[in-house]
């Protein structure tokens, strides 16, 4: 047990060092985007990797929190930390409603239901007046954190995103290794047996769904403040597909996989941006390759090489 923790600590140290040192050589806004998506993917991975539930509608939580944070910061004048908390709370509430509906079915039905619910939310935001339709909510003020720290300073903003990301990451790590996480894994492996052991699996799955939605919301709200924008892109089904891709590529059910996956996918998008629709083709190709030949993902394969789960 102690041995298995050492390499996780080392990997965690490497990750923290990367995000602390990288802005010296890489554009910090890009890294903030990576961290937001990494947190989003980690939240998604909590559900699929440990609960075995494939949600194809996670964009609804990212987008809802983004809209709520952007609207409250811009129109109601909330300070950034309150706006982020408010956005996260909205995603949490939506997660409760969507979760109650979605966990009534399993497997591919669960995927189809979450996708359909997310599409409904998308159409709602498309028509709702406060979202600004195709334009989105633009020029969201970053404001001052706790009234003190001016977030228009890029390094202050970077530090906040780093803290939010690491806090979310550690929370998920803690959840996975708690008794709750163990029960969740047992449901993934064999739900009837978990039921026969006396666990109310519906409640566990719902709690996992709400936790995942809330953390995805935290990522979305933070992203809206960083980029001063909340738009339809974040609620569209292609965003739900993207987070699946990040997690699959990095490694389903691995702790660090989603972070690596997010880094790779966001970099790809950044460097292939001028290729237009070919980005979709490349992403689709990666999906096909991953499923056919590379199901463990990057981190999963690494973990197999060093014979320890990462």
């Amino acid at each position: 047990m102690t041995q298995s923790k050492t390499h996780e600590r080392v990997a965690f140290g490497v990750m923290v060092a990367f995000f602390v040192l990288a802005p010296l050589v890489v554009y910090p806004v890009f890294l903030m985007k990576v961290m937001c998506f990494a947190l989003f993917a980690c939240a998604f991975n909590l559900l699929i990797g440990y609960g075995g539930l494939l949600s194809f509608g996670h964009a609804m939580f990212l987008g809802t929190a983004g809209y709520a944070a952007a609207h409250s910061a811009k129109v109601w004048g909330f300070s950034p930390e309150v706006a982020i908390v408010f956005g996260t709370a909205c995603a949490c509430a939506l997660g409760g409603i969507a979760g109650v509906l979605a966990i009534r079915r399993q497997g591919i039905y669960f995927a189809m239901i979450t996708l359909a619910l997310a599409q409904m939310i998308f159409f709602y935001y498309l028509q709702a007046p406060f979202t600004g339709g195709e334009d989105g909510i633009q020029a969201v003020p970053r404001g001052r954190l706790l009234g003190l720290l001016d977030l228009s300073n890029i390094w202050a903003m970077y530090a906040v995103v780093l803290v939010v990301f690491l806090a979310g990451f550690l929370f998920i790590y803690r959840a996975i290794h708690s008794p709750f996480g163990q029960v969740l894994k047992s449901i993934r492996e064999n739900e009837p047996r978990a039921v026969s052991l006396g666990y109310d699996t519906t409640r566990y799955k719902l709690l996992a769904f709400i936790l995942s939605a809330t953390l995805a919301g935290l990522a979305g709200a933070t992203k809206a403040i960083v980029f001063q924008l909340a738009s339809l892109t974040d609620v569209h089904w292609s965003m739900s597909g993207e987070v699946v891709l990040m997690t699959l590529l990095g490694g389903l059910g691995t702790i660090f996989g989603p972070v690596v996956g997010a880094l790779v996918v966001v970099s790809l998008e950044n460097y292939l941006a001028q290729l237009g629709a070919w980005v979709t083709v490349v992403q689709g190709g990666i999906f096909v390759l991953c499923v056919l030949t590379f199901r463990r993902g990057i981190v999963g394969e690494l973990g197999r090489l060093i014979r320890r789960p990462l």
Partner: peptide
């Protein structure tokens, strides 16, 4: 022989590829 979800993921990827090619 695998989890049914992989079929969903594979066909989703194929859809992205086909639609992307035609959009280009």
């Amino acid at each position: 022989k695998l989890d049914h979800l992989y079929g969903l993921l594979l066909t989703f990827g194929l859809a992205l590829v086909i639609q992307g090619v035609f959009r280009n």
